[in-house]
Write a protein that binds this DNA or RNA. Structure first.
Length: 982
RNA sequence: GCCCGGGUGGUGGAAUGGCAGACACGGCGGACUCAAAAUCCGCUGCUCGAAAGGGCGUGAGGGUUCGAGUCCCUCCCCGGGCACCA
């Protein structure tokens, strides 16, 4: 800053509200809040009861932010938007007499810290702790009213002990479909033992009764019921990184996002959680919660419930071997002209014949088309063609399969099945457009009425048989003939009257689709060839990661390789210390070698002697770790009772904070980004419901109300070469943007290093203070909308705080300039209108308009002060109180200077006096044919006739009505009078 | 392709079917000052007009209504989600 000639720059009044004073005030109040435990939220019982005598009897309010990951980069101004929003909300309700719980912890396991550790050799705990400390500092400087005692981190041993405990609950649980809830596995064992339940399981293929099963089989049967189970699941395997990757970590060309290495689909034995057991409840209970509708829609789509039927197709020449398919259109069964299995389908190997069939047994095709033998030449045998096709399909990642468009590939297996309705033999293909993970992994193909089947049929010259009559309009538009489906240009997927669908037992002909579905459903059921079925897109949750920096599983394996739970008393299973955090990496194309997670190298940790009730034995520990989602699934419960080492959470504490007085209960307000619309929110709901079934929590849903805050975007600037330049150095002038003399282009994007447009909270604290930053972020737009950051606009709210301060405090002496004299009536009316509006806006999270109202009130106060030289306390007191949730430091400072010894945080929020909300006269717009022609004043509460009379008395209205016939008069009292003239 | 959001002044944004543009930024003008900054006051959707006053205006087109930014239909653009789910 340059010194002006002959003047000093430091002639500002000492008590002007500027960045320097703001910083001084903020630091002082933050220290005081901390020292006085201002935001400690008392629990009803347990170690956190300090202050309960004040809180007892108040309504509770649990306000929650989504769990942040403590990034090494620190915060930019986009991050705290939601945290400020929840803090304002929490402070508002605290002033409204609620016992408010608001806390912030850290989701501190995860990949970035581990990768950093791999690169630097520094233990991830060290970097994680440093990042948490920096984030705590940045958030503390914002003045967030959190209870610091509850700020748990997922990496705390005392925390992940309970994450492991929850895993044991899941492992120790099965889903009782009849009771429609999870139950302890001991109850299952008791029922099996008593013979009241049959041991139905793949582990007991012959269906022997429990009493005849060996111990080992019994355990396998029980394991197959568990909600946490081991499965050979197809995963994205990246040998060069030595790990399995999430779909999001794989690029469209099937390579790893990090390092660009090949990624293969490959089955690996992994822990899987049976979230699909809860699919129906996760769907149905969305009706219980107050969430944004788009989020509910996303969850519904993700769960993807489909109603249809499973139908068995007998395989020709294999007695007793059926291929089971799932279809949502059993009414089109007569139109099934071929079948498709997923390449990985277990029946494929069983049905593939040694050679291609000599005589071809469908009536449409007599010779085997060359293309049916696959895309690898015509001289191969079926087994080879199938093998090659599987390899071809397996080399593609999930994303690659999707990105290739809709070109259908596949290969004939050489086998046939009978259409169970008419006995016709139909060829069986494998193709990767059928996914093993959905339905039964096999379909009946009805090319006339399914677009994918249609495309495949065209690719392979399969016949297309229409069994639903398309609408006339559909046929006319395409010039198609209803009876010649082979010539249709595309599949007819709509509904319509069934046709050509008849056998000796049943006829669907002429039935509407819904009726046809019902009739065929009954027939399939009666004939024992099919049954109504519900299928979900939702898959069970793959829960293993080959990482170091995550929660170890509380699982050991015995000599048989069967998993055994580590007893609760032996928790936590602590992460062993390591110096090398990387999984074993392999050559790029190694699809065979098993992954070796970092923990597998710690021999003296892996090998362990335990007594699991049958004497001390040696076991091997599970060496995978849990995904990052695990810790973030339940942190909101631990905030309630963070130090409890006897239970996850004390039941009485849980009931107090989560218990719903009305509705379903749960967290009263949960604020976070829409990016967690599905995974986190679905996983957390799943765990919560399981804990609910087992009686550990009292509500069926964790989050009663959800709110998605928007994102702060930021302008970024590129120079002539298209290179990003430092946004802070760009100025706007002459209708363009310049960096020095060079013109630059403006874009908008996420705030970040790569766009060189980061603005940090620290920058804002330095230039304006935290209260200004808070106020600006709340003022710039509705909380749920995304909007561009504009440092220039920060001035507006800063000036408001400065003016408000100046209205109360003498800038040169620091003494307050207020008086007890009553305010004038107009000021009072403005005051009470403001109180009413601000109160309801804050309750609705509409902080931007609440702040606008405060601006108006303060502008009025500025006039009053100018007129009489002092501010009426009658206005100042409620104004400062209304400001308190938004800019708490300056509010507390003013409150204190006004002579109040206690913090303003628990002062009652002002109440509007209805006497001042009422007005004697209102201004009413007068319209003629909907166009405003005049304003007239009418007594408040006047009737329609008085409105019309007042309007007609106005000379502009008279002029507008002159010579016209009034056909109708519409009066909306207090708002409008509309003359309809002819 | 399917499913959600959204499109309002130069900018961020207000507006239970009832006076479009609250509030703020920016801009223009004025007061104060030797001057500047800061502060305070006024004006500021576009357009015709000296003014009074008029016309036009919420992505485009249609509709419902006394009255539409708001409700309905068709379309365009932007953002997000899902995507061979049988």
């Amino acid at each position: 800053m340059s010194e002006g000639s002959g003047t000093t720059s430091d002639d500002r009044p000492q008590y002007r509200y500027d960045a320097r004073l703001a910083n001084e005030i903020e630091t002082r109040w933050q220290d005081r809040w901390e020292a006085e435990h201002t935001f400690w939220a008392p629990n009803p019982v347990g170690p956190l009861t300090e202050g309960w005598e004040r809180a007892a009897g108040k309504p509770k309010l649990y306000v929650l932010d989504m769990f942040p990951y403590p990034s090494g980069a620190g915060l930019h101004v986009g991050h705290p938007l939601g945290y400020i929003g929840t803090d304002v909300f929490a402070r508002y309700w605290r002033m409204r007499g609620h016992n408010v719980l608001h806390a912030m912890g850290y989701d501190a396991f995860g990949l970035p810290a581990e990768q950093y550790a791999v690169q630097t050799g520094q233990h991830p705990r060290v970097t994680t702790e440093a990042n948490v400390a920096n984030m705590r500092r940045q958030l503390r400087a914002l003045g967030l009213g959190h209870d610091p005692r509850r700020g748990v981190a997922t990496t705390d041993v005392a925390y992940y002990r309970w994450t492991q405990w929850i895993f044991l609950q899941i492992f120790g649980t099965w889903y009782d479909d009849v009771a429609d809830r999870a139950r302890p596995i001991a109850e299952l064992e008791a029922e099996l033992e008593a013979g009241s339940r049959e041991p139905l399981s793949e582990a007991n293929p012959d269906g022997l009764p429990w009493s005849e099963l060996e111990d080992r089989t019994r355990r396998a049967v029980v394991d197959s019921y568990r909600l946490a189970y081991l499965e050979e699941a197809a995963v994205n395997w990246c040998p060069a990184l030595g790990t399995v990757l999430a779909n999001e970590e794989v690029t469209v060309d099937g390579r790893s996002e990090r390092g660009n290495h090949p990624v293969f689909r490959r089955p690996l034995k992994q822990w899987v959680l049976a979230i699909t057991s809860y699919a129906d409840r996760l769907l149905a209970d969305l009706d219980l919660v107050d969430w944004p509708e788009p989020i509910k829609v996303m969850q519904r789509n993700w769960i993807g419930r489909s109603v249809g039927a499973n139908v068995a197709f007998p395989v020709v020449g294999h007695d007793g071997v059926d291929i089971e398919v799932f279809t949502t259109r059993p009414d089109t069964l007569f139109g099934a002209t071929y079948m498709v299995l997923a390449p990985e389908h277990p029946l494929v190997d069983e049905i593939v014949p040694p050679d291609w069939p000599d005589s071809f047994i469908t009536d449409e095709v007599s010779d085997l088309p060359a293309s049916w033998r696959g895309i690898f030449g015509t001289d191969v045998l079926p087994t080879e063609a199938v093998r090659k096709y599987r390899e071809f399909a397996g080399a593609k990642s999930e994303l690659e399969r999707q990105s290739e468009g809709k070109v259908k590939t596949g290969v004939f297996t050489g086998a046939f099945a009978h259409n169970p309705l008419n006995g016709w033999p139909i060829p069986i293909f494998i193709a990767d457009y059928v996914l093993m993970g959905y339905g039964t992994g096999a379909i009946m193909a009805v090319p006339a009425h399914d677009q994918r089947d249609f495309e495949f049929a065209r690719e392979f010259d399969l016949s297309i048989r229409g069994v639903v009559r398309p609408s006339d309009a559909w046929l006319a538009e395409r010039g198609a003939d209803a009876d010649d489906a082979d010539a249709w240009p595309e599949a007819y997927v709509g509904e319509g009257a069934a046709m050509a669908s008849e056998n000796e037992g049943v006829s669907l002909d002429g039935l509407a689709t819904a009726d046809a579905k019902r009739v065929i459903g009954e027939y399939l059921d009666a004939e024992g060839i099919g049954a109504p079925t519900v299928t979900y897109k939702l898959r069970d949750w793959l829960f293993s990661r080959q990482r170091y920096w995550g929660e170890p599983f509380p699982i050991v394996y015995d000599d048989d390789g069967a998993p055994r739970a580590v007893p609760e008393a032996l928790l936590p299973v602590e992460l062993p210390e390591l110096t090398d955090f990387e999984p074993r990496v392999l050559s790029e194309d190694d699809r065979e070698t098993d992954p070796e997670p970092p923990l597998a190298r710690v021999a003296d940790w892996v090998e362990v002697e335990l007594d699991l009730g049958d004497g001390p034995r040696r076991y091997r520990r599970e060496t995978n770790t849990m995904p990052q989602w695990a810790g973030s699934c339940w942190y909101y419960l631990r905030y309630l009772d963070p130090t409890n080492d006897a239970a996850l959470v004390d039941p009485e504490v849980e009931r107090y904070w989560m218990g719903g007085g009305d509705g379903t209960g749960g967290v009263d307000l949960y604020v976070g980004g829409v990016e967690h619309a599905v995974l986190h929110l679905l996983y957390a709901r799943f765990w919560h419901k399981l804990l609910f079934d087992l009686g550990h929590v009292s509500t069926p849903e964790p989050f009663a109300r959800l709110f998605n805050q928007g994102y702060i975007q930021a302008p970024a600037f590129t120079d002539g070469r298209g290179v990003y330049v430092e946004a802070a150095e760009v100025v706007e002038r002459d209708g363009g943007f310049f960096r020095g003399d060079e013109p630059v282009n403006r874009e908008f994007g996420k705030m970040g290093k790569s766009l060189r447009n980061v603005v940090t909270p620290d920058d804002m604290y330095r230039d304006y203070g935290a209260d200004t930053l808070r106020l600006y972020e709340m003022f710039m737009g509705p909380l749920d909308a995304s909007r561009p950051w504009s440092t220039a606009d920060v001035t507006g709210v800063h000036r408001f705080l400065q003016r408000l301060w100046r209205n109360v405090v003498d800038e040169s002496t620091g003494s307050v300039q207020v008086d007890d004299a009553p305010a004038d009536d107009e000021t009072r009316r403005i005051l009470h209108r403001t109180i009413a509006a601000v109160g309801s806006d804050m309750a609705d999270l509409k902080f931007n308009t609440a702040i606008a109202r405060l601006f108006e009130l303060n502008n009025r106060l500025t006039q009053v002060v100018a007129e009489r030289g002092a501010a009426p306390l009658e206005v100042v007191v409620p104004l400062v109180q209304m400001l308190a949730p938004l800019s708490p430091h300056v509010a507390d400072e003013l409150w204190s200077r006004l002579g109040n010894p206690e913090t303003i945080a628990y002062e009652p929020f002002p109440e509007a006096d209805p006497a001042f909300l009422a007005v004697d006269e209102v201004e009413v717009a007068v319209q003629v044919n909907g166009k405003v022609r005049a304003q007239v004043r009418v007594a408040s509460g006047a009737d329609d006739a008085a409105h019309e009379a007042a309007a007609r008395a106005d000379e502009r209205v008279m002029a507008a009505l002159a010579g016209k016939t009034v056909r109708k008069v519409i009066v909306v009292p207090g708002r409008i009078v509309n003359f309809v003239v002819g």
